[in-house]
């Protein structure tokens, strides 16, 4: 693969031109979009979304789905915030408790979906409701006053980057390495394309998605803890509400198919960036509330349209440069 941007890659990632166009548009209309402060702000805000969207994307690629992440996020935030505010918990214990809460939700989801074999849509819709209730029952009132140790999780700078961004980068790198460099990465795709064929090929068709449920739960709880640390407060009723839809939107706009078996991490990261920039830009421009909703909806439809066009554009881009070099050896995609 070449390092320069060629038409084929642009066609594979239709969000790139969209994001560039949005950035130019917002910069021209506000004059403050491209400021390093603002860009860093977008990155920090988007970090929690990325931390959850990445493992969720792997789960969707393997043919499953986790809708409970919004509530797991709240549970993770409540767990960490409760320990920090009520018991003076330090960074490590707070994060640990939060991760445990997330792993527990992931284990329930994974057990019901992968071992028992229930529909992930229904199971995680159920845990979405139930886990929110747990979080609210556990901490009905807002939690505040976390102490400095826990504040470090969301407020520290590592090499000039805010810690949430650094954690998000780590998550992306680890997931990217698993997908690209390990046999398990191929198993994730294989299960998503055909669970039956994967099973007959000896792939661990229960263990792999189960582990992805665990990872998604843990990452959702961690994201909640990070956001709690950034805010210095947790409201169990509103924390992460609607987050599951934002995650799913980022994953799908990023080109991961809900049917499983296809999608790339680059696409997911672009999907996260797309949502973050859109949100930031519309606020910068000062678009009224309901028009923001209209604009967000339209932007999603445009992104979906481009995702639809992408394979066709890619095919076009693939034909032109190769027609000159290759003749018959490349198989043309069959239509059946």
């Amino acid at each position: 693969m070449s390092t320069t941007v060629n038409p084929r890659q642009l066609a594979r990632y239709p969000l790139i031109p969209v994001i560039v166009a949005m950035a130019i548009g917002f910069e021209l209309s506000t004059g403050s979009f491209m400021g390093s402060q603002n860009l860093l702000g977008i990155a920090t805000d988007s970090a929690t979304l990325a931390i959850v969207a990445v493992p969720s994307a792997l789960l969707v690629i393997s043919g499953y789905l986790d809708l409970s992440v919004g509530s797991t996020y709240a549970l993770g935030a409540v767990a960490a915030g409760w320990l920090a505010s009520e018991h003076g918990g330090g960074l490590l214990t707070c994060v640990l408790l939060s991760l445990l809460a997330g792993l527990a939700v992931g284990a329930v989801n994974g057990f019901l979906c992968c071992v028992v074999g229930l529909s992930p849509f229904i199971v995680t819709l159920g845990t979405l409701t139930a886990v929110r209730g747990l979080a609210q029952q556990f901490a009905p009132l807002p939690l505040t006053s976390f102490g400095d140790s826990f504040a470090w999780l969301g407020g520290a700078k590592v090499a000039g980057l805010p810690s949430p961004v650094v954690i998000a980068l780590l998550v992306v790198l680890v997931a990217g390495a698993i997908l690209a460099l390990t046999p398990v990465g191929r198993h994730i795709y294989a299960i998503g394309v055909s669970r039956e064929a994967a099973y007959l090929s000896g792939v661990r068709v229960r263990t792999v998605p189960f582990t992805l449920f665990l990872a998604t739960g843990a990452c959702a709880a961690l994201a909640g803890a990070i956001k709690a640390s950034v805010l210095g407060a947790v409201q169990s009723g509103t924390a992460g509400s609607g987050f599951e839809l934002a995650v799913l939107t980022a994953v799908l706009v990023g080109g991961v198919a809900l049917t499983g078996g296809s999608g790339t991490l680059v696409g997911v990261v672009l999907g996260v960036a797309f949502l973050g920039i859109l949100q930031n830009g519309l606020t910068l421009v000062g678009v009224p509330t309901f028009w923001q909703q209209v604009a967000q909806g339209l932007a999603l439809v445009v992104a979906a349209g481009l995702a639809y066009l992408a394979p066709r554009l890619e095919a076009l881009a693939a034909v032109r440069p190769q027609a000159a070099r290759r003749t018959t050896s490349e198989p043309t995609p069959a239509t059946t």
């Binding site: 191929r186 394309v193 055909s194 064929a197």
Partner: peptide, 15 residues
Amino acid sequence: QGLFASLTALDNALL
């Protein structure tokens, strides 16, 4: 039961 239609030939043969 056999093929991973959208995966590459290499993945299919060597999974």
